[in-house]
Amino acid sequence: MIETDKREVYRYLGYRKNMPDEAVVRLVDECLKDLQEAVTPRYIFREYPIQSVYPAGGSAAQIPVLRIAGMEISSRSLMRNLRGCESVYLMGTTLGLGPDRLIARASVKHMSRAVILQAAAAAMIEAWTDRVNGEIIQAAAAKGLYCRPRFSPGYGDFPLEFQEDLARILRLQKEIGVSLTESMLMMPSKSVTAVVGLSREKAGCVLHGCEECTKSQDCAFARNKV
């Protein structure tokens, strides 16, 4: 059972601060129930040291390069996220193909249902990922380490192309059934990959948050937006 926050579902549906009417509320409940039966939640996380951080040679931008598990990432926002970290957890989560099938099925005749399933599944994968992230936080705490908020390829200037590396390093296809399309979309579509920094120093927010995302200004779904 994945506890999903219905307010998140309404938010994804565009309700912002409004409350949906009774019919929609009921449909959301139904969809969450159907999803609950259709999902096959899976996850994987593995710890990797941050091998090195060094300045990019000669480039004008001078963005440092992070080496993690053989990846060489130059991203200011990920750097900021991982400040003070010596290692990371790489994580992957998914709800399986069940939601995709339900959405495809609903799209044949009931787009209203498809749209609600889509929003509900989006909220559910966030909830599932939060739960897995919670386990990571505990695993880190056992070693006396603190987690940073999770950070995914595509956030800020962390290039989406690293999906491919994460998929390979974590063997996502084999371990949790997540594969990438040619254009780097994850299938099942309700899947998340992320980097979680580990540090000896405590920091404020340990779970994800829109506040961390540089795209939140022009994102229609951002929290705390009117």
Binding site: L13, G14, Y15, P20, A23, V24, M111, S112, I116
Partner: peptide, 11 residues
């Protein structure tokens, strides 16, 4: 009116 209602009306 929000998207789900719009679509329900359409249906």
């Amino acid at each position: 009116i929000f998207l789900p209602q719009l679509l329900m009306s359409a249906e």
